[in-house]
Simulated scan of single mutants.
Amino acid sequence: MTKLRIKNFGPIDKGFTGSKDGFFDVSNLTLFVGSQGAGKSTVAKLFSSLCWVEKAVLVGKKTAKEVETLTFLKNLLSYQRIESFLNDESEVEYTTDFVHIMLSHKKISFKTKNAEKYIRPQIQYLPSERNLVGIVDRFAQLPLLPDSMQDFLYVYDEVINSQEVQNSVLPIEELSIHYNRRKNKIELQSEKYTVSLNEAASGFQSAVPLFLVTKYFIDTIKKRSRELKFKNVNEQKEFEKVLDKNRAFNSFFINVVEEPEQNLFPNSQKNIIQFLLSSLNENIQNKLIITTHSPYILETINNSIYAATLQKKGFMADSLVEKQKQIDYDKVSAYVVKNGEIHSIKADDIKQIDPKEIDGCSEEINAIYSKLSDMEFSNGN
């Protein structure tokens, strides 16, 4: 189990209020909702950064001594441009079955436990700025972008040059994706037209990089797993020992996605989150961390949870929600970030995520409409 504690870091001052020690779970599927600037992306970026530190040390790319320096800490946070959030009162703890990382008083400590059982993941942060790859040429040379975005662009460049991209089908309007090597452009094809991504709608410019990068890593890991069928963890660890460090074997995927709904019509939001859930279910160790503003994302996930609950009880829920797109309630964590605090929004009594933190605005809008209607007809008009 992965747990995180955050206090006095940027917009998050009080941290998680649902436990005495301030720790909250990062499950197979973890969602963060909240208004702009509340800190949900800050949480996702901290998780991604510390997850990377865990991997870097345990696979031998960094030593514990190297990461326990103020310079490393500042560089780590500046990678996601959250270094200004660090102050003398900041406290961040990250703990898994293999490490304990503590950030306190501008110092970082790293301790290992059961490190010999660590299985390396592929870690990818999909930033909200990902739509830039569809509209900017020679993107890797843009110096003003955060380091994290520049790295994402390099990853994307590797992905679109891979064989896996050709003839992929986007789960939105079933458009075929083709990489035109001569023009060095991604093209979207339907029965009626072909359009370059840089000329496509903004929703496609956001969804295509998300889809391609996720699909690439899921397919790559799945392909490698089929080629190398290990009997147990010890056998896999022995294999990893003889690998060249530059040919790291990643066994599962940690996918951190900012706003999967970005620029998408509600039905397309449903399709993209179902794709992400299907990808998550390719491996029991996979993790999907999402920040979102969308009630459609939450309601689609709630349907997937409900379907999984009914499927366990013997109902044919997969006739409505495919089994690959279902998710067990116990594998989900969901939080709202607001007023410097993190609260769980899971409703254990009904085994659903409470959508009111996002969709409460609809109630307010409807209430105003009712009052306006009452005003019009109160005088018998």
Results as ranks from 00 to 15, higher is better:
Met1Glu: 08
Leu4Tyr: 03
Ser19Gln: 08
Phe24Gln: 02
Asp25His: 08
Ser27Arg: 10
Gln36Ile: 10
Gly37Asn: 09
Cys51Asp: 09
Ala56Leu: 11
Tyr79Cys: 08
Ser84Ala: 09
His100Met: 09
His100Ala: 10
Ile108Leu: 15
Lys111Ile: 08
Asn114Tyr: 06
Asn114Ser: 15
Ala115Val: 01
Ala115Cys: 05
Ala115Gly: 14
Tyr125Glu: 06
Asn131Trp: 11
Asp137Arg: 15
Ala140Cys: 10
Asp151Pro: 01
Phe152Asn: 04
Val165Trp: 03
Gln166Pro: 02
Ile172Pro: 00
Glu173Pro: 00
Leu175Met: 09
Leu175Ser: 07
Arg182His: 14
Ser190Leu: 10
Glu191Ala: 15
Phe230Arg: 13
Glu238Gln: 14
Pro260Glu: 08
Leu264Ala: 00
Asn271Glu: 13
Ile289Leu: 12
Thr292Ser: 10
Pro295Cys: 10
Tyr296Gly: 05
Tyr296Asp: 02
Ala307Gln: 08
Leu310Asp: 02
Lys313Arg: 09
Asp318Phe: 03
Ser319Cys: 01
Glu322Asn: 12
Lys323Cys: 09
Lys325Glu: 13
Asp328His: 11
Ser333His: 02
Ser344Leu: 00
Asp349Gln: 03
Asp349Trp: 00
Ile350Ser: 06
Ile350Pro: 00
Glu357Met: 05
Ser370Asn: 13
Met375Thr: 08
